Computed example of a mutant assay.
Amino acid sequence: MESLLRWGIENSVPASGDASELHQVAAEVAAGKRKDLLDPALYEAIMGKSDAVLMKEAMAAATDKGNDVEQRIVALENFEMLVEQIDNANNLEFLNFWAPLIELLIDPEDEIRQHACWVCGTAVQNNAQAQNAFMKLNPLPTLLALISTVPAPSDLHLPAHVSKSSQATRSRAMYALSGTLKHNAYAIGRMDDHEGWGWQVLKGGLSDPSMTIRRKTAFLLSTLLLLVAAPTSEFTLTFRPAPTTSNPTPRSSSTAVTLAPTQANEFPTDSSKATPSVPSPSYTSILKSFEAHGIPSVVLDSLRQADFPRAGADGDEPPANEDPDYKEKAGRVLISLLEKNGLTEELKAEFGTYWLDVKKEQGGVEKAFEVGKEEAVEIEKLLSLQRS
Rank of each mutant, 00 (worst) to 15 (best):
L5I: 04
E10S: 08
A15I: 08
A26Y: 06
K35P: 05
D36R: 01
A41Y: 05
L42M: 12
A45I: 09
I46Y: 15
S50Q: 06
V53Q: 03
E57S: 05
A61C: 07
M81R: 11
I86E: 13
A89E: 06
L92W: 09
L92A: 04
F94V: 14
F97K: 00
F97W: 08
P108C: 02
V119P: 14
A128W: 14
H157W: 12
P159E: 01
Q167P: 04
A168T: 10
Y175P: 06
I188N: 00
Q200C: 02
K203R: 15
L206G: 02
R215Y: 13
T217N: 12
A218G: 04
L225R: 02
V228W: 01
E234F: 10
L237Q: 09
L237H: 11
A256N: 12
T258E: 10
A260D: 05
T262L: 12
N265K: 14
A274P: 13
S285D: 10
I286A: 03
H293E: 06
V299N: 02
Q305D: 15
R310W: 07
G315Q: 03
E317F: 02
P324C: 02
K329L: 05
A330C: 02
L343S: 15
T344C: 01
K359N: 09
K359Y: 03
V365Q: 13
E378D: 14
E380R: 13
K381A: 09
K381C: 06
